[in-house]
Every structure is written in C-alpha cells, then in structure tokens.
Design a protein around this nucleic acid. Structure first.
Lengths: 189, 189, 189, 189
DNA sequence: AATGAATGAGGTTTCATTCAT
DNA sequence: AATGAATGAAACCTCATTCAT
C-alpha cells in the first residue's frame, strides 16, 4: 500500500464498484478513498472506464490462467474437473470483490471493451467444455451436453460471490470439494 | 398493452434496466420508450426507484409463489426438487429481462427497499432447503449441507439469465430436466 | 425578446462569443446572460458547439443569400460589384457581432461542422469571382486574376468587423461606396 | 534549434496557437511538442499568457519596424505605399502562423497586455495614414479619407493569412505587386 | 535543468424531479 | 392526463500552475 499508487487506486475502485456498483460510484468516491483530489486521479488513470476495464481484465485473466494450467496437467479428466471446481471456487472466495465486479459490472463497459472481456469469458467456458468432452471420451463421464454441464457448474461456482462470507463454517476448499462431489455423484441416495 | 399505462411503463423499465442497467437508464429513456414526456411519467410513478422496487418485488414474488405451491404438493421430496428446478429454470427463461433486473439490479435499491427484497430472497432460499432437508430425512437424498446444495442449484439455475437464448436447441423444460438429472445423479459414469 | 427563448440564447451566445471568444465563453456565462440555470439551457440546445454552428451558419447564409440576388439582377457587372461591396459592408456593419463570430470562431468548430461552413464560404467567394470574370468578359474590368481581386475586396470588407463603430462619421453605406470607388478607380491621381 | 530552448518553446506555441487557437491549446500540448514535461516548461516561461504576449509583440514589432524604415526612405509617397504593401504582404506570407496568432488571438490577452498590443497596432495604422496623407499633399493620391484607405489596404493584406498557401501560382512578391496595382489604379477599364 | 505528483477551480453535460399551465 | 420549462445537484474530465525532489 502506498508504493504503487495506481494499484492503490485500482483497489479502491474494486472495493467501491463492488459495494455501490460502477455507475453509482463517482470518481469523487474513489478519490476520497485514496485521499487524493478528484483531478489528481487523472495522473494515474485516463478514465473511470479504464479502471473498470483493467479490473475485469485482471479478473478474467486470473480465471483463464489457472484453468490453462489444469488443462495441461497430466491427470484424469475427473481429477481435472475436480481441480477446476476447487480452483474456481477458491479464486472467487479469495477475490470476492474483484469477481463481483467482473460478473456484475463488465456489461457496463463500452462495446469495444466489453467485446474483449466477452471473448475471454467465452474462452474460459470453452476450457471447461474441453475437460468435460475429454472425460466423456475417456468414459469417465456420462455422455451429455458438455456446454450445459459447464454452464451448470459455472453457475454454481460463480454464485458464490453472492453468498460466501469469510469465517463461515466451511473453508473455500471444503466448499469446492463439496461442489465437486455434488456434480460428480449427485445428491440422490 | 395501452389499457394499463402503469404496466406499460413497467415493461419499458424492465426492458431498459435489463439492457442498460438501472443507473444507466434515464427517466427520459423510459419516457421515450412509452411515448410520453419525462414529466408525464410522474403521473404514474413517484420515482425511478419505485419502478425498480416494483419490478424486483414482482419478480421475487413470482419465484416464491410457485415454490410455495410445490412445497404444499403431495409428492416425494425428490419429485418436489425436480419440480422446483424445472419451475425455476422455465421461469427464468420465460422472464429473462425481469429476472436479470432482479438478480443484477436489486442491490441498487435504497437500503429500506433492498431489505424487503433481501427478506424475500432469503425466504425463497429457505423453501429450497426445506425440500432438501425433508428429502434427507425421508432417505431420498444423501445427508449433506442443505443450504450449500440449495445454493449450488440456485446458482446454476439463476446463471441461465446470462446465457439462455430463445430458440436454442433445448427448450427451457429440457434444460430444467437436464439440470435436475445432473444434481440428482451427478455426471460421473 | 422573450417570445422565442432559443433566439434569446443565440443572441446571448453571439454577444459573448464576440466579446470573449468561443472557448473563453462558458455555458455558465450564457446561462447568466439569459437568466437561466446552466442545466436549463440544455432544454434548448444540445451542446455549446451547436450554438456556434447555428450562428456561423446563419451568418454565412446571410452573405450568400444577398449575393445570389445580386448575381441574378439585370445590371452591368460593374454595378453588380458595387452592389456586392455595398451589401457586404453594410451587412458586416449591421451584424458586427455575428460576423465577428463567423470570421474569428468558425475554425473552432469540429471538423464535420467546420467543413460545412467552409463549403459555404467557398461558395461565397465563387460568387464574387463570377461577377469579376463576367465584368472582364464584358470589357468592364481590366483582365486580371479574379480570385485575387475577390480576395482583396473581401479582405477589406471583412476587416470592417475589426474597426467599424456605429455612430462614426461615415455611415455603412458611405463606407461601402467609398470602398467600391477605391477598388474601381484606385487612389492614384 | 535546441540552442535556445525558449525560442523552441515559442515556436511550438506559435504553431499550436495557429492550428488550434490559444484557448484550445493546452500547456501539455506545448510541452509535448518540445518534448518536455508540463512542469518543466515553467523553467522557461512564467505563464501561458506570457507566451502569447511575446508572440504577438514580436509579430507587431516586425510590422512596425519595417514600416518605419519605409517612412524614412527618400522615395515618392506612391513608391512608399507600394513598398509598404509589398512588405506587409510578404511579411504575412513568410510568417503565416505568427501573423495568424497576432490577428486572431491577441484579443485573448489580459486587458493590460492587450492594451500594449493595441497601441502598437494603432501606431502601425498611423504610419500607413501618414504615407497616404503625404501622398495626397504631394498630389500623388486623390484627396480622400486616409484612415479608411489604410484600413481598406490593411484588410486586404491581412486577409492573406486566411488563404495564402506556399507554392501557389503567384509568389508573395507578385501578390504584393498586384495588390499595390489594384489600390493605385483600380480594376475598372 | 527537469520531473511528475498534486492541486483546486472550472469546464460541459446529464439527470431525477417539480410544477404551472 | 399531459406538457415542457426549470431547477440544482452532481456527473466526468481538463487544465494552468506549483513545488519537493
């Protein structure tokens, strides 16, 4: 904190965008949060939207980077899926504010910027379907619609940003495990 | 359409809030959409926020009403859960815009209003855990954390508002069935 | 005054743009001049630049309209030129502020708008060369570079906006006559 | 270039003030043009306005200095007038940007500064009327209003900054000659 | 000599809401 | 029921200038 002012500003923006929403957060709010005058912010940023863009980009990149490593790893498809769920869930839980901004505010980006984020999220989805398709081919998963399955899992895992609270009775890792188990085994006795 | 002007205004608001977001939608936008002057809107509404409140309330009420009927029905817990998933999925798919406004914009409500919506969504969650708990007790479901299971299912089902498109290769009913199957049986072979 | 608010605003803008320049005139200045709040101006205009555009357009149109009538009239080229000089001079003198805005501020228009004004001023110049060329053909004027002559005359006549003051010892008509005489006969004895 | 940084800055300012206007040119623009940081400029200048003042002063001084030499020369009034026109025209043509700044932007100076420039331009005008008055007394020119004649000539000659382009079919000298001829002989056959 | 962080005032524009007609 | 003029606050952003380093 303090070393890199841009980072400090981005952190303030993440916090405020999460709490109030992008449009309801004023540049003044961000300036107040970092203790600068409104105008002084513009030494570091070129626009409020640039901040949102950087934040969402950083967020989706974090998801993609982890997922690519999992895909490249030498384990069974089932284990890849378990890892993917665990990683997604813990990443959301450990970056709640940033994830919320990505999931809720990215659509406020200007069309050009939004397109870039959209492409990255599409890529992320594809990485999920790859794992599932491979698992089906390896006879590890039931045949099915891999995109629908991926969307079901991602829905569950993303939803975490709406209810997870640090200090609850389960750790993110435990939640990830549980989610993995649900999707693999189902809840029926 | 045209009979009830308030309803017409609400429909315009739903459409615009979904498309642009609550804060990015101006009262002028809504007025344009219904073909009135900005000032004339205020014969029908008392504030922009009131519109958002009515919309989110109507939306969450729709979810709750259906769920209560399911709970009261005389079928097994498993069948209740299947019905609940089917109903939620089809309700989202058939009310995409309104659902999006509920899920993405409710947090823009003033604290007092937001609290009301929060209570209703909490109630909705509780209805889901009720079914699951009963299913566990009836030995239909594996023992587990019913809240976590409900949140997993709701996450999947809510996420639909981000990707569902009318005219896709599966109907909402088919998607609902598939989701139910995933959560009951899992995807592992 | 008061009947047409837009006209009132435009008049205030002309006065202020002339006095302080376009960029040095704030929307606040204009609002103060007409006794409105800054924001209220935007019921009548869509931007400050629109005002400048309207003003310059009205101004150059005034010049062109008069000139076209002169061209169509059935008099000798010499008399057309005299009329043109008289009209230009009196138009400048009677619309000092607007002319100043046209001549000094039009270049502040955005490229698209500026292009429109440029085309109109080019057209105006061409009307002048037409008269001169016809006069040369009719053997009324010495052979010469009609464009250069037109630019010389226009320079003199436009410059009026920098020095003319109402109530001076010569009326605009007298100045026009004198200018016409200078350009036709020269000053040499 | 480079030896005298102040001169470099002034040249950048002339170029930018001409292109965009004084108010539309930011100190940042000037800094960019000379490859310095905004703050560093203030080692050389004390304010943006000082730059405009220096530029306009240098410009009007150039006009006055030449004119004084002409007045002192031992030739007929007619030849003085011809020389004056030639010099003015070539000076404008060879210093287009600086002249434009003088003619278009001087009025943006603060009152105190503006007054100084005004006095110099008034002096310049008086030098012209002196020549004309002497020519009338020497029976070289027709009797007339010397101020009006001077303003007519200056208008033509100043207007050059709005249309002259290097590389046109006439050199500045040829244009000067032509203008002199027009004002002396007129265009009527 | 040069930087670049910071200021604080002011720029244009948008907007939810009110109200007389 | 509908208008449209008007408000006043707040939005994002720019800018000339200062100053510690």
């Amino acid at each position: 904190m303090g070393i890199n002012k841009y980072e400090e500003i981005a952190q303030a923006a993440i916090k405020l965008f999460e709490r109030k929403g992008y449009h309801a957060t004023s540049v003044q709010d961000i300036a107040d949060e970092v203790g600068l005058q409104k105008g002084s912010l513009y030494h570091y940023i070129s626009s409020k939207e640039e901040l949102l863009m950087k934040i969402t980009q950083q967020s989706i990149n974090g998801f993609n980077r982890r997922m690519e490593k999992i895909i490249e790893s030498q384990v069974s498809s089932k284990d890849k899926l378990i890892l993917a769920i665990q990683h997604h869930v813990t990443y959301v839980a450990r970056n709640m504010e940033m994830t919320t901004v990505l999931l809720r505010e990215a659509f406020s980006l200007e069309p050009d910027h939004h397109k870039v984020i959209k492409e990255e999220t599409d890529r992320y989805l594809k990485l999920w379907t790859t794992i599932i398709d491979e698992g089906v081919q390896a006879d590890e998963f039931k045949p099915g619609d891999s995109r629908l399955i991926a969307l079901a899992i991602l829905g569950s895992a993303n939803w975490l940003h709406r209810w997870y609270q640090e200090g609850g009775k389960m750790t993110p890792e435990e939640i990830g495990n549980y989610f993995a188990q649900i999707f693999l085994e189902g809840i029926k006795k």
